[in-house]
Write a protein that binds this DNA or RNA. Structure first.
Length: 260
DNA sequence: ATGGTAGAGTGTCTA
């Protein structure tokens, strides 16, 4: 089974790229973030004609998550227990969706950005991760994948210029500690072993030709529970998908799984 | 400190 995650930055504007991506890599399950659409707005014909089911959640034009699967899509859950909300109207329900696909529990996660360290959104981000961790502790003994845009660069090597990020969100000690908490609980970054080295990124800002100069961040991750991680046979970042006109600012991350 | 680009949808907001 092949599972992928991708912050697509609008599913409607990039549906052709999504369909081409599914075809090109023969993907079974795709978790999406920043779909930027409500469920009833989504273009589904090209997906259903390929044999995929879709579960989506989204209440505004900024967030939105979805799971696309051709190996079953059961027990769909929007949000996780205790998930914090922020502001009015609350948009938290656009940040997490879970489903069981081919025997694996997949959570598509769009972790709050945090904006600035002195912004209430930063506190919200840390709280959101803390509540997610509490739920995830209850899933760790089952085949579970926590996938998506974590908006955290766990290591200095995950940032193109760590000095320039001093004092910025995504690299602060509390954010990194929050990420590490999942690792401490037994989840593994199942992609890094297959994509070693510095200057390996999943996101490049649209500004300043960051992709062309490979000045990016590694912030999109697949964290697998022990039984999930044990089945991982390979992984890669589809860096080329970020190239050219009409690309998302994130590249898809792909994991191959062979469960007993 | 600011600005640069992109996508939502017409006013800015978000990243």
């Amino acid at each position: 089974m092949r599972i992928a995650t991708w912050n697509v930055n609008s599913l409607r504007s990039r549906i052709d790229r999504v369909e081409a991506f599914l075809d090109r890599h023969d993907v079974d399950v795709l978790a999406l973030q920043e779909t930027k659409a409500r469920e009833e707005q989504l273009p589904l014909m090209g997906l259903t004609s390929r044999g995929y089911e879709v579960a989506a959640a989204g209440v505004n034009q900024w967030n939105g998550v979805a799971i696309i699967s051709r190996v079953g899509l059961e027990d769909v859950e929007v949000g996780f227990p205790g998930m914090p909300t922020f502001g009015e109207p609350p948009v938290a329900e656009s940040r997490a969706i879970g489903a069981t696909c081919g025997g694996v529990r997949v959570w598509s996660l769009y972790v709050p950005n945090g904006r600035k360290v002195d912004d209430p959104h930063y506190v919200y981000k840390l709280e959101w991760l803390a509540r997610l961790r509490e739920s995830a502790q209850g899933w760790v003994d089952t085949p579970t994948a926590l996938v998506g845009d974590w908006n955290v660069a766990p290591r200095d090597e995950d940032v193109f210029d760590i000095l320039a990020f001093a004092g910025s969100t995504h690299v602060t000690a509390p954010e990194r500690a929050a990420f590490q908490g999942f690792i401490d609980d037994g989840y593994d970054d199942v992609v890094r072993p297959h994509t070693p080295g510095p200057e390996v990124y999943t996101y490049w800002d649209y500004f300043r030709q960051r992709y062309e100069r490979n000045r990016g961040l590694r912030i999109d991750f697949v964290l697998g529970s022990p039984s999930f991680a044990a089945g991982v046979t390979g992984a890669f970042i589809d860096r080329d998908e970020r190239a050219g006109k009409g690309a998302s600012d994130h590249a898809p991350v792909v994991v191959d799984l062979d469960l007993p």
